[in-house]
Write a protein that binds this DNA or RNA. Structure first.
Length: 441
DNA sequence: TCGTCTCGCACATTTGAAAGGT
DNA sequence: AACCTTTCAAATGTGCGAGACG
C-alpha cells in the first residue's frame, strides 16, 4: 500500500500529534487474502437478510504506521461498485438494469474505537460482527444494502481522540479490490455456496464429508465435539490466515477517489459483466457535497471482542488496496453527544497504557452514519453513485422513531457542513465524500 | 411464468453462567 | 476467598428448501 501523497494537510491540523507524523505512514493490509481471492475469483456473494447477516469471509485487517499513543477510530462502509443491478443468469452475472436508489448509507464503527495506535497495530483488527441487511428500516444499525448489487467495503481510519473530533480529523480510506461482493438474498453461484460451506465453520453442517447433507444423517462425532471444533478451527485458520501474513505486503495505492473501487460496471472479474477499469475516473463521480456529518446514534453492538484475537496475521496485503486521505467535513457536535459520559471522559491521549477495547461501550457497535438527512437540506449534497435521488431516510430529523428512545439522539441536521478548504487535486472528491454525510449512533 | 425474497428448519459454533476443583 | 477449568444451555450463525410475492 502506499500512502496518498496528495494529502498535504498541515500536520498541526492533525489531532493528536505534532507534526512528526505523516499520514502517509499508515499501512493497512488485508488478512486472509488467499481466502478472499478464492471467493473473488468466483465472484463473491454476501447474503443479506432482514435481521442482518454477517459477512463471510469477514473483514480482517492489519495496521501499521500508526502513532502508538494517538487514538484512532476505525470504520467500514460499503460503497456501490457501479450503478447497476445484476442478475445471475446461466452461470454468470449480467447487468439487468440500473441500480436502485442507494439505501441509507451506514458506516460500521469498530467496537474498539477509539483506541491507541498501539492497540490497532498489536494484532489484526476484525470486523466479524459487521452485519449486512436489506431492511431499509433496520433499527439495529446494520449496513443496509440492496440485493443483487455489487459493493466494495471501504476501511477508514481516523486519527481522533474521540468521536467528537472525527469531523475535524484527517482520515484515510483503504479498499481491497478482492473484497468486493454482490449482495444477494440467496446464493446464486453454487461455487460460492460450496466455498462458504467449506470454509465457514457455521456452515459445517452442510459439508459433504460423508453423506452429511445437512440432515442429521451422519452426525458422527469422531471425537468429542470440542476437540473437533478446535481442530476444525485450527485447520481452517491455517487456511484463512495464510502464512503470508504479517509481513504485510504492500497495499497498493490505486486512487484516491471516494469511488476508488468502483467501476463502470461489472465486477467479479470472472464474469461477463460489463467490463470496467479497476480504477475509475474519480472526477466523473464527484458531486459537490458539503455533507454534514451528524452523529446520531451509537448502537451498542454487542461487546466488543477486542480486535480479533488473531494470532497470525496473514500477509496482508493481498495486494491491491486503494487509499484515500482527507479531512472530513466539519459538523456541529450534536448536543446529545454531550450526554455520553464515556465520550467526555476521553482525553487527548497521552502516551501510555490506556483503556481500550470495551472501555468505551458507547462507541461499541455500529456507527450509523446514515446518508439520510433532511430532504432539501442535505440530500442532494450527498454523494451518490446513482445521482441525487437519495432518499433521506431513516435518520431524518423528523422521525426519530427509527431508533428506540434510548438510542435516539437529537440531531442537528440544519448544520451546514463546513467544507475544509483542503487542498487536493480535486476538491470535489473530498467534499462529497459520503462517509460522514450523516451519522447516526 | 419467472426471478427474488422470506421463513422455518436442522445443524453448527459461540458465549457466558454455573459448577467443581485447586 | 480467589482463581482456574470444565460443563452445559442458550444464543447465534449457517445454508437449504418450500412457499410467498411482485
Amino acid at each position: 500500500m502506499a500512502l496518498q501523497s496528495n494529502f498535504s494537510a498541515p500536520s498541526s491540523s492533525i489531532p493528536g500529534g505534532p507534526g512528526a507524523y505523516r499520514q502517509g505512514n499508515i499501512r493497512m493490509t488485508l488478512e486472509n487474502p488467499e481466502l478472499w481471492k478464492s471467493f473473488h475469483e468466483i465472484g463473491t456473494e454476501m447474503i443479506i437478510t432482514k435481521p442482518g447477516r454477517r459477512m463471510y469471509p469477514h473483514c480482517k485487517i492489519n495496521l501499521s504506521g500508526l502513532i502508538p499513543c494517538s487514538k484512532y477510530i476505525l470504520l467500514v462502509d460499503m460503497v456501490p461498485v457501479d450503478g447497476f443491478r445484476y442478475k445471475w443468469n446461466k452461470e454468470k452475472w449480467e447487468v439487468t438494469g440500473k441500480a436502485e436508489p442507494q439505501p441509507p448509507c451506514r458506516t460500521y464503527l469498530h467496537p474498539d474505537s477509539p483506541a491507541p495506535g498501539s492497540h490497532w497495530m498489536k494484532q489484526s483488527v476484525s470486523f466479524l460482527k459487521l452485519k449486512l441487511t436489506n431492511n431499509t428500516l433496520d433499527q439495529h444499525g446494520h449496513i443496509i444494502l440492496h440485493s443483487m448489487h455489487c459493493y466494495q467495503p471501504r476501511f477508514h481510519i481516523v486519527q481522533a481522540d474521540d468521536m467528537y473530533s472525527v469531523r475535524w480529523s484527517v482520515f484515510q480510506t483503504f479498499t481491497f479490490s478482492e473484497t468486493s461482493f454482490t449482495s444477494v438474498t440467496a446464493y446464486q453461484n453454487t461455487k460460492i455456496t460450496k466455498l462458504k460451506i467449506d470454509h465457514n465453520p457455521f456452515a459445517k453442517g452442510f459439508r459433504d464429508e460423508g453423506t452429511n447433507t445437512k440432515k442429521r444423517a451422519n452426525r458422527i462425532p469422531a471425537f468429542p465435539e470440542k476437540k473437533a471444533k478446535e481442530m476444525d478451527y485450527l485447520s481452517k485458520d491455517s487456511y484463512e490466515d495464510s502464512p503470508s501474513s504479517i509481513e504485510e505486503e504492500v497495499v497498493k495505492e490505486e486512487h484516491y477517489s471516494p469511488w476508488g473501487p468502483e467501476r463502470e460496471h461489472g465486477h467479479h472479474g470472472q464474469t461477463d459483466s460489463p467490463p470496467g477499469p479497476d480504477v475509475r475516473d474519480i472526477a466523473e463521480q464527484l458531486v459537490p457535497a458539503p455533507a454534514s456529518y451528524q452523529p446520531y446514534r451509537f448502537h451498542k453492538y454487542g461487546k466488543s471482542p477486542s480486535p480479533s484475537s488473531n494470532l497470525d496475521s496473514s500477509n496482508g496485503g493481498s495486494g491491491r488496496a486503494s487509499f484515500e486521505s482527507r479531512v472530513p467535513d466539519v459538523v456541529t457536535v450534536p448536543e446529545h453527544e454531550a450526554s455520553k459520559p464515556s465520550v467526555h471522559e476521553i482525553r487527548p491521549s497521552p502516551c501510555g497504557p490506556q483503556p481500550i477495547a470495551g472501555h468505551h461501550p458507547d462507541y461499541t457497535g455500529v456507527l450509523n452514519i446514515a446518508q439520510a438527512g433532511k430532504p432539501g437540506v442535505l440530500s442532494h449534497h450527498i454523494y451518490s453513485p446513482y445521482g441525487t435521488e437519495q432518499t433521506l431516510g431513516q435518520w431524518s430529523g423528523p422521525s426519530p422513531a427509527q431508533y428506540p428512545p434510548p438510542h435516539h439522539l437529537p440531531t442537528d441536521y440544519s448544520t451546514p457542513a463546513v467544507h475544509h478548504g483542503y487542498h487536493h487535486g480535486n476538491m470535489a472528491e473530498w467534499s462529497q465524500y459520503p462517509l460522514f454525510s450523516y451519522s447516526c449512533w
